[in-house]
């Protein structure tokens, strides 16, 4: 099963609701019938590393552990996903599309 590890930034002054975003994402993945294994342990690796940064400064991108560098990395940075500006209400939807592509590609391999 395709696995995802979620990392949250410290949340000092986020411009988005990170917890709500992840809950929203999980709900939408279920609706799309995408079977995802969410990895809980810090030292476990996953197919995809999802960085939930509360703002564009994206602190998490500065220190990605070596063990996680082998994963595909998706980064939410406040109201941005990767290099694209995305409104908060639409971020979960954008992530579902991207995860769907990666998980399908992974299945094909």
């Amino acid at each position: 099963m395709f696995s995802i590890k979620i990392k949250y930034c410290g949340g000092c002054n986020p411009e988005i609701d990170r917890v709500w975003l992840v809950e929203s994402l999980k709900e939408q993945l279920l609706e799309e019938a995408l079977k995802i294994d969410f990895v809980e342990q810090e030292d476990e690796t996953a197919d995809l590393l999802l960085l939930i940064n509360g703002c564009k400064h994206a602190c998490l991108e500065q220190e990605i552990p070596d063990t996680d560098k082998q994963s595909v990395i998706l980064s939410v940075k406040g109201e941005m996903v990767g290099d694209q500006y995305v409104k908060e209400s639409e971020i979960a939807g954008v992530l579902v599309d991207l995860i769907s592509k990666y998980s399908t590609a992974d299945t094909k391999q």
């Binding site: 703002c55 564009k56 400064h57 994206a58 940075k77 941005m80 290099d83 694209q84 500006y85």
Partner: peptide, 14 residues
């Protein structure tokens, strides 16, 4: 220090 990367690759301030 709180700046960020824009889609162009250039960095902008906070």
């Amino acid at each position: 220090y709180e700046g960020y990367k824009t889609p162009s690759g250039a960095y902008h301030i906070h």
